[in-house]
């Protein structure tokens, strides 16, 4: 596929094949959800828990493949149970890295067992680990959409309590807010978001959509709503650009492009923006004097 000079034709071309349509639809939903849920993951400093959940999901997906079930269902089951267990056993998940690490290693081991028991080809395993956005079926898109709508609805309802308890858990608890329940809801949100995001970037690259865009946005904006919008925008841009480059450019894995683009944004903000910002502030201060 070659790029023409006409942007509209290029865009139409992107949507020509169903596999690209599905990829763009599912990728868009996943980017929006990952950008939003990721904001809370970073704010609560639960990125390791999110990482672990994706590995727990790997065992579920591998198990589902073994029993010839759609891997997403295995992911949802394992991440749902694993996420709730983490929230119940260690309410302040960020502080229990060792326990989480122990469970995730075991789960990864379990995944390896399921894969070895599975006699089919290894491409399924590969796509669970690294994502296979171009292999998404129309029923996967519907499932992704349903999961996305549920996540959006739940976040809209719990937004303020979740934000406050993520930011200031002790005061939230003293105010009588259901911090324990919110912790479980949060982990379930991460579980569902992880399960659908695995289709796009795989369990090993989940950070690129669930953590990095939100981490970048929290450097750029100090108002939660603005930060969430930036986080979603970065995830969307990376997904769309990643798909387009894979389509028009060298046919390397889409998840490689997505992770590279996200990493590029990260470097830009980490090293360029941080240097430019003090300069801008300095110039503004000069103007005032």
């Amino acid at each position: 596929m070659a790029l023409s000079v006409n942007f509209v034709t290029d865009l139409q071309e992107l949507f020509r094949y169903p596999f690209m349509q599905h990829a763009l639809e599912a990728g868009t939903i996943v980017a929006v959800i990952a950008g939003i849920v990721g904001y809370f993951v970073v704010l609560r400093r639960s990125s390791f828990a999110a990482h672990a959940l994706s590995h727990i999901g790997f065992a579920g997906a591998a198990g589902a493949v073994l029993f010839a079930v759609n891997p997403v269902y295995g992911l949802l089951l394992f991440t749902g149970v694993g996420g709730s267990a983490m929230a119940v056993l260690s309410p302040r998940a960020a502080h229990r890295d060792v326990h989480i690490g122990t469970v995730l290693a075991f789960m990864l081991g379990l995944g390896v067992l399921f894969i070895s028991l599975y006699a089919g080809n290894s491409s399924q395993t590969y796509s669970i680990l690294f994502g296979q956005i171009l292999g998404i079926s129309s029923s996967d898109v519907i499932l992704t959409l349903a999961a996305g709508v549920i996540i959006l609805a739940v976040v809209a309802v719990v937004y303020r309590p979740l934000l406050f308890s993520s930011l200031d858990e002790d005061v939230a608890e003293a105010k009588g807010m259901p911090t324990f329940l919110l912790g479980i809801v949060f982990m379930l949100l991460v579980a569902v978001a992880t399960s659908i995001a695995v289709q796009v970037v795989g369990v090993l690259l989940i950070f690129s959509l669930m953590v990095t865009p939100a981490a970048i946005s929290q450097q750029l904006a100090k108002r939660p709503r603005t930060a969430i919008m930036i986080s979603v925008t970065i995830a969307l841009l990376a997904t769309w650009l990643g798909l387009s480059i894979a389509y028009y450019g060298p046919p390397y894995p889409v998840s490689f492009y997505i992770t590279t683009l996200v990493f590029g944004f990260y470097l830009l903000v980490r090293f360029v923006y941080r240097r430019v910002r003090p300069l801008t502030a300095y110039r503004a201060a000069l103007k005032e004097t």
Partner: peptide, 22 residues
């Protein structure tokens, strides 16, 4: 590491118990 505007924290202390978006 908490890059949140201080007004947001105080606002949430007032209305953070309420469900939904303010």
């Amino acid at each position: 590491e908490t890059n949140i505007e201080s007004l947001e924290l105080v606002r949430l202390a007032f209305s953070g118990k309420n469900w939904g978006v303010s």
